[in-house]
């Protein structure tokens, strides 16, 4: 790990003042479960760390029926998964937060950090840059072992997959993210927070180098909405999923009025599938319609060579999430 300056501001204004104008000037330290590994492996090397854990205003979980849920960015995954309000009103969020990574990581990893988590692309993690560039300047992914890489939105140059299993759930709930920077507060739909970098110097979030994540806000789910999150993961113990699907179905009698279907680990961003949502609209749910929605979700998917299985697995994840949502299974 390279030498860095450590700062621990008490106020947000102070914090953004300590952050830099460019990436690598400074990094925000919250749980540190991703950042410290990246620094030890010399993948990122900030000159300064801005510890935000002393800022109490970034904490707290609160819920009102009118305003929905507000989660301070410093809340840990374990705290979120065990919160009574979250469990009652956002069961899919409690499930995803409680099933991510390992108990040790859930105990320290914050929701803000989870949103800002860097990709697990194994070329990126081995020092070949965010876009996995080889010695000849070309991407290493198309000709390499891309078994875990993107099947959607994979036109390049970014082929990695967005690593958060919690973000797609929040997007299915139509969450927004609040940021704070030198010009004050900014709020945007969480879906828009995730962007696809075009160059190695860009990042995969709509976050400026001198902004911090302050809150996640989630509207109250529509009454009677049915939800489920399904993760295709090989191991029970700590493992990255091949694909996940989070669905929220607004029912009208026995049929779907509208739906939100969000996949993750399939594209460089959490992937909102309008195709799957459309396939569900007006339908009553049984195996066939759920599978048709799964098929619609991957209709535009493309294998990079070694990741064809992910197309199947994404489709199954969508189908199973839909079936679980309507069968009242595990949310």
């Amino acid at each position: 790990m390279r030498a860095f300056e450590y700062t621990s501001p008490k106020e947000k204004q102070q914090a953004v003042g300590l952050l830099g104008r460019q990436w690598n000037d400074a990094e925000v330290l919250a749980g540190g479960s991703d950042l410290l590994g990246l620094m030890k492996d010399d993948i990122v090397h900030p000159k300064r760390l801005v510890n935000v854990k002393d800022m109490d205003e970034l904490r707290g979980i609160s819920f009102t029926p009118e305003h929905g849920l507000r989660i301070g960015s410093l809340e840990t995954l374990i705290e979120i998964s065990q919160d009574a309000q979250v469990k009652q009103h956002y069961p899919m969020l409690a499930h995803a937060a409680g099933d991510a990574a390992s108990p040790q990581i859930r105990n320290v990893a914050t929701i803000g950090g989870n949103m800002c988590q860097r990709p697990r692309c194994w070329w990126f993690r081995n020092g070949f840059g965010l876009l996995a560039t080889g010695p000849d300047g070309k991407s290493l992914v198309p000709d390499g072992d891309n078994r875990y890489h993107a099947i959607l939105g994979n036109e390049g140059p970014a082929y990695f997959v967005s690593p958060s299993t919690v973000a797609p759930v929040l997007i299915a709930y139509n969450a927004s993210i609040r940021l704070f920077g030198p010009n004050g507060r900014r709020e945007l739909p969480l879906q828009k927070f995730f962007v696809v970098p075009k160059t190695d110097g860009e990042r995969e979030h709509d976050l400026r180098p001198n902004e911090i994540v302050t809150d996640i806000v989630v509207p109250a789910p529509p009454a009677g909405a049915k939800v489920a999150h399904y993760e295709v993961r090989q191991k029970e113990a700590f493992d990255w999923p091949y694909a996940t699907a989070s669905v929220l179905l607004q029912m009208s009698g026995g049929t779907v009025r509208w739906a939100r279907v969000v996949l993750s680990h399939v594209a460089p961003v959490p992937w909102v599938s309008n195709e799957a949502a459309q396939a569900l609209a007006g339908k009553s749910i049984f195996e066939q319609t759920a599978d048709a929605a799964g098929q619609a979700a991957v209709a535009n998917a493309r294998s990079l060579g070694r990741n064809k299985h992910k197309i199947t697995l994404a489709r199954v994840a969508v189908k199973r999430a839909i079936l679980q949502a309507t069968q009242g299974g595990r949310a």
Binding site: W122, N126, Q234, D239
Partner: peptide, 28 residues
């Protein structure tokens, strides 16, 4: 789970970390 994944272009091991060099946990 286990496999040493090598990259022919760069000659390096891709999964030299225990999140992708995977071992069974008790639940498995």
């Amino acid at each position: 789970y286990e496999e040493k994944v090598m990259d022919q272009t760069t000659g390096t091991m891709l999964n030299s970390n225990m999140d992708t060099y995977r071992l069974a946990g008790l639940g498995d």
